[in-house]
Nucleic acid binder design. Structure first.
Lengths: 332, 332
DNA sequence: ATGAAAGCGCTAACAA
DNA sequence: TTGTTAGCGCTTTCAT
């Protein structure tokens, strides 16, 4: 049984495409289609299990009911969870999620964005690694519905959903100092996005504030392409340097470091303490103990959808910059 | 600057749409377009940054270069990681991933599948919770490119990428018995998919094999809609019944149980042992100790893509049923 | 109360 | 070597 189109339906029923289309789109009454005809159509489409071709619809209407979700790595729990929430929210509204991972690679980001646009996504939700990229520039110039989250470029006017990176990190580090930390190292992904820069700033501020002073040598950077080995190397370095606390700017590295500590430095899992941005469940019971800054994932998803929906319903408001307050989680 | 279509390009250049289209699709030489004309077109599209409308292309060609990826929960690390691998593989080939989560809900699965098909995805990769559903039936009947993974229905002929559920679980449980387990409980999601059924079977086989015999009361089921509380309740029950080992049929519940043990039964994290299907990083260091069955995620992704590509390149072979061997990971 | 026809942007058979 | 044209499946204006 071949797939039926509106044309087929119309022919089979001796009606015009127009009439069928009206009925299918619940415009039967509005367009004065007799209820008898409407019933005929509805019965028939059920019978043959008619499925509208969304591609044709999209071409005609210029929208696809698809949202592009572009992040560094969709398998990172932080992005995966937000993705799931977005998917749920948007599903309710009849939207689907097209996903892409950039691997923190500017070129790939460009390409994926282009593809998304070519596929006529109606809106984009992006944790960009390069907000100054050409695609993004032209999207912004064209007023394309677009929300950035997790990452910011202060030089670029846009919708942002962020968290208070600096102050939260400062608070977390200060807390650990109150708890006795005296020599604090930091391991971060290459901070070419502002969020990470700010988190590192927060770390520095705390050290200065608490009269510890920071030592550039204790700030260790790991390249995204070399996560495992890089983290291993930098962790070893910091341990050699005798830190009592290690601060991480995101969950990824912290999780790897916990694994490393338990695998190679089992004797130190109690003496060394961790501080980490982002939160993952296993922090609740893993060693070293972690003071973590939990981002409000549900709020991030909620505000993203809200902004997007507002734009799509063309209540098109001004650009918004929403800065959410994360939760500091201390573990004894 | 409005977005240009092929028509615009053609007009601007005083050419026909055909010529432009041929050049754009690298058919210039094949179609004997003069290299001069080709250059004019190529230069111009670069100048105006022409972006083809994939929707129109899709409508015309009947394919979208989009693959639907449908799983119970895209934020489950198992599915998220496979999703990421698929995305990488397919990206190379010019395909994108449209994602959906079913929440183990048959109705939602039906709806998402329908939407995917209406959106003309070229193929589907599905961890279905209901392989006997109407949509799937008609997809299979229509010979739609479709690969199931993680879940199987032996009554339905199709492409499957699976792992040896029964024997692997049996081996894992037997290993734990060798290590001293004597009273083994099991907690599982509602086993209305065969994978889970088989894993439970494996557990039973091991018990019988090792002359322990199984007690139906030690098999506890948790509903997917009540994961946290359900797991808490069943875990408590098993502990009250005095088990020395708890077997889990997937990572989700195991991870929750580890959290619960560390939060509410700290005194027992050393005396009770876990066995779990699936593997997650924190098993390497968390307590209770876990014997886990690690699914070969990369192979699952690899074979899925291969089968799909073969079908799409219409080397359309017979249905394949690939059963992969997981890795047993024991932790001292 | 219903239908004819144009057109969304693209491809490709066929003409010239 | 390039252009004309039909058509993918749908929506919607304008007729009837």
């Amino acid at each position: 049984m071949k797939k039926k189109s509106i044309k087929d339906i119309a022919q089979d029923l001796g009606l015009s495409k127009t009439t069928v289309s009206f009925v299918l789109n619940n415009k039967g009454d509005e367009k004065n289609i007799s209820s008898k005809t409407q019933k005929r159509v509805l019965d028939y489409i059920r019978e043959v299990n008619y499925q509208p071709n969304q591609i044709a619809k999209s071409l005609k209407k210029g929208n696809t009911n698809t949202i592009g979700y572009l992040v560094p790595d969709i398998s990172n729990p932080f992005f995966a969870k937000i993705g799931r929430l977005l998917e749920d929210h948007f599903w309710e509204k009849g939207y689907h999620l097209l996903i892409g991972s950039t691997d923190e690679n500017k070129d790939k980001e460009e390409q994926v964005l282009n593809m998304f646009v070519n596929r006529q996504v109606d809106a984009l939700i992006v944790a960009s690694c390069f907000i100054q990229g050409d695609s993004i520039k032209s999207l912004l110039a064209a007023n394309f519905p677009l929300v950035f989250f997790d990452r910011e470029d202060p030089d670029v006017e846009a919708n942002y959903i962020l968290v208070e990176n600096k102050i939260s990190m400062k608070n977390a580090v200060e807390k650990s100092i109150q708890n006795g930390a005296r020599k604090l190292g930091l391991i971060s992904l290459t901070p070419d996005v502002y969020s990470l820069k700010n988190r590192i700033e927060g770390y520095k501020m705390a050290l200065i504030n608490k009269d510890i002073g920071f030592d550039q040598d204790l700030i260790r950077i790991v390249d995204n392409n070399d996560l495992k080995q890089g983290t291993e190397r930098e962790l070893r370095k910091l341990i050699e340097l005798g830190v009592d606390t290690i601060v991480f700017t995101n969950n990824q590295i912290a999780v790897i470091a916990i694994w490393l500590m338990n695998t190679f430095y089992k004797d130190k899992v109690n003496s060394i303490k961790f501080v980490s941005f982002d939160n993952v469940d296993q922090f609740d019971y893993s060693l070293p103990k972690v003071i973590s800054v939990a981002q409000p994932i549900d709020k991030i998803a909620k505000y993203s959808t809200e902004i997007i929906e507002d734009i799509l319903n063309s209540k098109k408001s001004e650009n918004k910059r929403i800065e959410l307050t994360p939760k500091l989680i201390e573990r004894k």
